[in-house]
């Protein structure tokens, strides 16, 4: 693989992702509105009923809005990853995935480039949300916006790789409703995105254990700590390990010899 060829392909894939995202205005709008609805309505309601003790990385009592914003940021990344995964299933059903997979580059590189491009395109919206959240008094240190960047990229890559894996397994777009109900929602709700782990433990030790092992919780905590200029080594290791595992499995899924791709049958 020649470097200039690989970089041009990455640039082309990134450009396509940006153009498609900018032209799908309804998707852009809903991606922005979804976390704001959670922040403005859900968080406002919970603020009065949910007391928070001092939980790291916070060094004092914080408003529920402050607690929930990193979770909502991770939710944005999760939904963006799933939208991207759905787009891949759509591309495969519509045939345009074939164009990508018949490019003269290794398949793992093409999938990695698609994954990276999807994450890069999703990040500006996250920063826009973090800026808007300041109006709800969610004001992390200014340097936190810089420190959180690598955490966002890593978490976005891990969730994107998970989406890639889902897209390699999903045979039809209709299956995606099942994915949302049985994978995405449990992943989000059984995590530390909305409640700290000690709160979940009060509800039941099983739920707390699931949340502790849920890689989405690690993404949330990595973002939360970075936003407040702290580094959570365990969360980072979990995120990196899951990124590697999900991506490898997705590459196998898209591999012509081993994956499901070649077992399904074509048109004729």
């Amino acid at each position: 693989m020649k470097t200039h060829h690989a970089l041009r392909a990455l640039h082309g894939i990134l450009q396509r992702e940006m153009l498609r995202t900018l032209r799908q205005r309804a998707r852009l709008f809903s991606a922005m509105v979804r976390p704001l609805v959670w922040l403005a309505i859900f968080a406002a309601g919970f603020r009065s009923v949910l007391g928070l003790s001092i939980t790291p990385p916070y060094q004092t009592y914080v408003l529920y809005e402050v607690y929930v914003v990193p979770g909502l940021v991770a939710m944005m990344l999760l939904f963006h990853a799933m939208a991207s995964s759905l787009a891949m299933v759509y591309d495969r059903e519509m045939g345009s995935m074939r164009l990508l997979l018949t490019a003269p580059l290794p398949r793992w590189y093409l999938l990695a480039a698609r994954l990276l491009a999807s994450v890069i395109v999703g990040l500006p919206l996250v920063y826009l949300f973090l800026f808007v959240a300041r109006f709800w008094d969610v004001r992390p240190p200014i340097l936190g916006y810089v420190a959180v960047f690598p955490a966002l990229v890593l978490s976005g890559l891990m969730l994107g790789a998970f989406g890639l894996l889902v897209s390699s397994i999903s045979t039809q777009m209709e299956n995606f409703a099942g994915v949302m109900n049985f994978v995405i929602f449990p992943m989000f709700f059984a995590s530390t995105a909305l409640y700290p782990i000690w709160r979940l433990a009060e509800a039941g030790p099983v739920l707390a254990t699931i949340a502790a092992w849920n890689p989405f919780s690690s993404a949330v905590e990595l973002i939360r700590f970075a936003l407040y200029l702290r580094f959570d080594l365990v969360s980072m290791l979990v995120v990196v390990a899951c990124l590697g595992a999900f991506f490898l499995a997705a590459v196998v899924g898209y591999e012509p010899g081993r994956g499901l791709w070649s077992r399904r049958g074509g048109e004729g």
């Binding site: 060829h5 690989a6 041009r8 392909a9 082309g12 894939i13 450009q15 990508l100 490019a103 093409l110």
Partner: peptide
């Protein structure tokens, strides 16, 4: 995408 963008995307994939 437009036809021009479709072609340029393909060209990028081919380096």
């Amino acid at each position: 995408l437009t036809p021009g963008e479709n072609l340029r995307y393909h060209a990028a994939l081919h380096g």
